[in-house]
């Protein structure tokens, strides 16, 4: 199929940036979206132009690197897929496709479609862990039974890949789905109880410091999340936060 691509090109964080038109031909339905981008980039290089810069790595939907805003949606029209798992069979011959980077103040553009998501790392550094050393002196794994239901819920929250689609989708550029997924995972497990209060306060504070917006319960993040992380996690985080602050921790 033939496609008209309208792609955001921006040479650096200070550059103003603009949409640029590209035509590609010979695209097959079995290609992934990123393989279509590979075809375009090969053409650009052979012509002596600079290829479009974008983040990508595993190309199987788990590393969380790829991050394209396609036709106004994070990771494009598919549900429960990352950009690399989106296939061209989702598009029609002759279609025009708009491709933009994640847009959020806390995710500055580095170049073209590549953005800086290190704010997410700093949120995890603020408390997204259990403070246990790796000395090997931990108790036997089975000495702490955990109800299957809790373990499964914790797992569901832990499947977040940190891609940032939630932030890109949110009209407030809020990172609450991301932050609450980690807080939920650890608050559902007994291992996470000891530091639960400090954790939620520190992580929420860091989230605010990074310039992410607040949650106004629109729920768009949940719809666009490639891993189906549930909005329930935000409710759980708010509950944890209220309980922590009410008990005088600050």
């Amino acid at each position: 199929m033939k496609l008209l691509l309208k792609i955001w090109r921006q040479n650096g964080p200070q550059d103003k940036g603009k949409m640029v038109d590209y035509n590609v031909d010979g695209i097959e339905g079995d290609m992934s979206f990123l393989e279509m981008m590979d075809v375009l980039n090969s053409q650009l290089i052979e012509k002596g132009d600079e290829p479009v810069i974008f983040d990508h790595d595993c190309r199987e939907g788990i590393c969380g690197s790829c991050s394209m805003f396609i036709n106004g949606e994070a990771h494009g029209p598919g549900r429960n897929v990352t950009t690399c798992q989106l296939h061209m069979r989702s598009f029609k011959d002759g279609e025009t496709i708009f491709i933009e980077p994640w847009r959020a103040e806390a995710f500055p553009v580095i170049k073209d479609l590549m953005v800086d998501r290190s704010a997410f790392d700093r949120i995890i550094q603020a408390g997204g862990y259990v403070s246990v050393n790796t000395s090997g002196n931990t108790q036997d794994a089975n000495s702490l039974p955990i109800p299957k239901e809790d373990a499964d819920l914790a797992f569901d929250a832990a499947t977040c890949i940190g891609c940032g689609a939630c932030v890109a989708t949110c009209k407030n550029a809020s990172a609450m789905l991301f932050t609450s997924a980690k807080i939920s995972q650890l608050s559902l497990l007994p291992q996470g109880q000891v530091e639960a209060k400090e954790r939620v306060i520190n992580m929420v504070n860091q989230m605010d410091l990074e310039g992410f917006g607040n949650c106004t319960n629109t729920g768009a993040c949940e719809v666009e999340c490639p891993k189906g992380i549930s909005l329930d996690n935000i409710a759980r985080m708010n509950r944890e936060y209220l309980s922590a602050t009410a008990k005088g921790k600050k």
Partner: peptide, 10 residues
């Protein structure tokens, strides 16, 4: 044991 202590949801 180590991973469970870290909160890995096996």
């Amino acid at each position: 044991d180590q991973c469970v202590a870290q909160g890995v949801p096996f």
